[in-house]
Design a protein around this nucleic acid. Structure first.
Lengths: 101, 101
DNA sequence: CTATCATATCAACAGTGATTGATATGTAAT
DNA sequence: ATTACATATCAATCACTGTTGATATGATAG
């Protein structure tokens, strides 16, 4: 019983940590903006860059952070790299949030 | 027409900034935990501290960040200071998020 | 009025992460 | 092959903020 309670507490703590790191990733204004931009449709880096008023390499950096965290997918199309939302993961993280915020 | 569009864009940008700074505040694991702890009921600093495994002054610090941002209320009760959620503001920030995440 | 309890403030430090400039990779066109 | 295009990587810097230790404030009890 005590063990079980401890176990549940650990699970809760883990989810809290997960939620916090998700929030960390999306709390950056430009990254939040990228998510918004990609909401309607997938886009290449150049298109995203045009919305953002940031140096190109910084756009790439933020895209990488989002992708490494599993929030974006990417594929090559000729010279271009097309980014899109990973809607499955986004949905999971969103549902995780409901428990904390 | 162009002016109006610009105006709307600025409003959107402002909301984005607001959302990002809200996410910034709640993306800290301990602060997220404080919100969770206060969800059931209001609590004094000592009670919150017992949940958190942090030095007392750091608990005070995080409480201040949350309160300054308008997510917590506080009142004195004898020696103790009782913190509680500012549910109105929390709700507003949550509804703001829906547009971005 | 002194001591103790409950909480907050302050200055200094440390770590993280956004930003920058330069350069590299990889693709297509000529 | 060479050039231009599209994006990514790298190292260095800068800024922010969580953390720490020490101290201050404010309230109650004895």
């Amino acid at each position: 019983m005590a063990l079980m309670k401890c176990c549940k507490l650990n699970q809760k703590k883990e989810k809290l940590t997960q939620a916090a790191s998700f929030l960390n990733v999306v709390s950056e204004e430009n990254r939040l903006n990228i998510l918004r931009i990609l909401r309607k449709q997938e886009r290449c880096v150049y298109d995203i860059w045009q919305y953002l008023d940031l140096p190109q390499n910084l756009v790439s950096h933020h895209l990488k952070v989002l992708k490494d965290f599993g929030l974006l997918n990417s594929r090559r199309d000729g010279k271009k790299i097309i980014y899109s939302l990973n809607k499955v993961n986004l949905k999971q993280y969103k549902s995780l949030l409901v428990k904390f915020i």
